[in-house]
């Protein structure tokens, strides 16, 4: 994309790109589709466990 075609949205997206962990993407791309979805479900279970644990820890 040339500079004249860029919008402020592209600049915003570039700012967000600084926070992307590329190593996680590289690792994911090495996985098969099934493995990517299984990883996603494990991540989902982990986040839900954290959500349950938060209020429990506060008593």
């Amino acid at each position: 994309m040339s500079e004249s075609q860029r919008s402020s949205i592209d600049d915003i997206i570039d700012v967000y790109k600084r926070d992307v962990d590329v190593s996680l993407i590289v690792e994911n791309l090495r996985r098969s589709i099934d493995e990517r979805l299984e990883t996603l479900m494990r991540l989902q279970a982990f986040v839900e466990e954290l959500r349950r644990a938060g209020p429990a820890a506060e008593g």
Binding site: I9, I12, I13, D14, Y16, K17, D19, V20, I25, L29
Partner: peptide, 26 residues
Amino acid sequence: VGRPKDFEVVAELEIVREQRRQRPTQ
């Protein structure tokens, strides 16, 4: 869609696209 959280997703997906271009076998 244009929400900030969607731009975060776009940022990651554009990096996914760059990485896939660098690793065409994956």
